[in-house]
Design a protein around this nucleic acid. Sequence first.
DNA 1: GTATCTTCTGAAACGGGTTTCAGGTCAAGC
DNA 2: GCTTGACCTGAAACCCGTTTCAGAAGATAC
Lengths: 313, 313
Amino acid sequence: MTNIHDIAKKSGYSVSTVSRVLNQKQYVSEDARQQIQAVIDELDYVPNDVARDLSRGKTYNIGVVLPYTKHAYFAQILDGIMSEAYKQGYRILVLLSNYDQEKEQEFLEQLRRKAFDALIFTSHGLPLEEIAKYLKYGQIVCCQNPGSINIPAAYTERFNTYVKAFAWLKSKNYQRIAIMQNRDYHESATSEKTIAAYKAVFQKMPDKNLIVNNVSTYQDGYQAAKHYHQTKANPDFVFCNSDDIATGFRQYHLDHNLPIPDYMGQENQLPSQILNFSTIDHHLNKVGEKAFALATSNESKTIRIESDFINRS
Amino acid sequence: MTNIHDIAKKSGYSVSTVSRVLNQKQYVSEDARQQIQAVIDELDYVPNDVARDLSRGKTYNIGVVLPYTKHAYFAQILDGIMSEAYKQGYRILVLLSNYDQEKEQEFLEQLRRKAFDALIFTSHGLPLEEIAKYLKYGQIVCCQNPGSINIPAAYTERFNTYVKAFAWLKSKNYQRIAIMQNRDYHESATSEKTIAAYKAVFQKMPDKNLIVNNVSTYQDGYQAAKHYHQTKANPDFVFCNSDDIATGFRQYHLDHNLPIPDYMGQENQLPSQILNFSTIDHHLNKVGEKAFALATSNESKTIRIESDFINRS
DNA sequence: GTATCTTCTGAAACGGGTTTCAGGTCAAGC
DNA sequence: GCTTGACCTGAAACCCGTTTCAGAAGATAC
């Protein structure tokens, strides 16, 4: 491979001057510029990005941790991140975690080893305290309310919107409200907000028999419906954690010729639009954009975005 | 930042020996290993990945060009690529092209500048001849049948399956078959196969008034339905290029209280499962896996995968 | 006429690793 | 006793750029 030294030698100038030409810096005579450019063209030379990255101490790569790609939540945040990234000449590394703490740790180590300039956690399995420890090695942004932990974050405030949704359910006098969650509320901030909002509205904890965890796909929604049916849980409303999941839930009933309890989804995606059920728009594109902006800054602030309850009943 | 030289100096050994310890190579005495490890631990040192990449001439990063993330086609291939990549310790850079030839050219230049080890085009706007020129700078894999162009590829053979689908339409005696496409058949191999299969079955070109191009989302499908309605195109069957699109098409009719012509989708995604319409499974996960395998090899072969017509009528 | 500033240039240090090669020690084989 | 080979180690070259700094030349200010 031809490198900058070859260009220097062949053109008769030094590598510094060649570097100036490559980076269009000032203080190069027109003469030198032309001669050097001629050699560059002749040898079909382009600089090596890795060497440049090493020298500049920056890769223009940013890692984005996603538990999985299929869930609309992550796909939307990723979209917001990528549109901003492209505008600013950054590249995005997609890092699948599946909520595996070891994998997340490995990604943090990669940040530490300077494999990318910053790391965005769209969601995380590791405790935030653990993640925050790596802030000294590079910028980290998370997409959930970090509470008392001092870590940059862009997130949607779900609590108020969940309260609105549950208040509406209360006004409709639903009695047996089922809740599907990605993870248990001890592990997940989102689930915790859900439960807290329920408590705030109904002044009691939701019925344990009506909560199902580990729900994240259409199939899981289908299975959850089966579970409710087999355990005779008998919900009169089901609060699902995505539109896809709500659709899976619905489908189980159709397949088995059962009446469908009322239900709602989240994310305001295609299924809720098609089937016209209520949902919550968390404005995840915006979350992604803001998260990216934080990732390339060295600010340590927290950006909060309000979500919206879309009542289609 | 502490580097390998610091470790060498502080431990009293040379950088070569430190490097051997870091990379767990043989020919290091237990004594040396322990002393060096102690210094590494004390200074909280980790090697710099960029320096390593430069030295090894390899980044373990692979670029994947996608026109957009929302289309199920690309999301599925990407999934296949990523699951393989993780297994083999590679990272994936997601590069959005939007079929913009300049962007695609820029990604090829990034390959040339060694920003990543290989480049996978899930689809491309540039002519393959143009892309193939960059093969001398690094491995490139495309996800379409490259025909006579010599470029590594993993793709689904659509023609036979399209023939099956059209043959079935013919057997049902449909007369006015509409076709939605992502791009015109002069630009896109997929569209070209579609038209060719139609011709093979019906012995004539499809009616131009029934072909709509630039369709790639639910919204586009909705708009296409509007177009057919307003132009009184009156199709009796609509061949859509994804399940989402088919769903948008359907929704237009529901919203306007119109009878829905028969239709089918592609990709075997959630909507066709929910609404139980026919579709085509292109086994895109497998395409992704194979594409990745090619990307990390230096083979120049072509891997063909058969797709399946899923008749739900 | 001299001080000062701008333009242009190159040597060398720097970023931080890996790898080659040469040399030394020591034990086994004959 | 000598050869051979395995083990251990370090100097230096290498990967390929960017950046600092010092110096030379020419122009401008006073």
